[in-house]
């Protein structure tokens, strides 16, 4: 599974991105990410329009089993089930291993 993640906006306004290939992760970390994607029912999520002021805007692209799916959302629009994945990917952007 490959994930491209982009977060922009927010009070700070500084965009962060990361690209993750679960193949290159330790097995437990890869499994944790896959579980987060599954728990979010990621491939069934709908796009949502940006709203409010200073909210983060997220773009998440997941490629798995030859399916590529993109979700664009914001803090208040994203379902709770997606929040752990967004937080995990945000922290991954801080690592030079994944940030692009």
């Amino acid at each position: 599974m490959r994930i491209y993640f982009e977060r922009s906006g927010g009070f700070l306004g500084k965009p962060v991105t990361c690209t993750v290939d679960t193949e290159s992760l330790p097995a437990d970390e890869a499994a944790a990410l896959q579980e987060m994607v599954a728990a979010a029912s990621f491939f069934e999520l709908r796009e949502t329009a940006p709203q409010g002021r200073d909210q983060f805007q997220y773009k998440v692209v997941v490629e798995a089993a030859q399916v590529k799916y993109t979700v664009e959302t914001t803090d208040t629009a994203a379902p709770d089930s997606l929040q752990p994945l967004l937080r995990k990917l945000t922290l991954m952007t801080r690592s030079t291993k994944f940030s692009s």
Partner: peptide, 24 residues
């Protein structure tokens, strides 16, 4: 608001504040 939320926003109706990286 949420956990590990590094932000504050106005949702059109009210102000909302996160606690920063308190989860780390």
């Amino acid at each position: 608001y949420q956990r590990g939320y590094d932000n504050a926003f106005w949702n059109g109706r009210q102000m909302v504040y996160g606690d920063g990286d308190e989860d780390l």
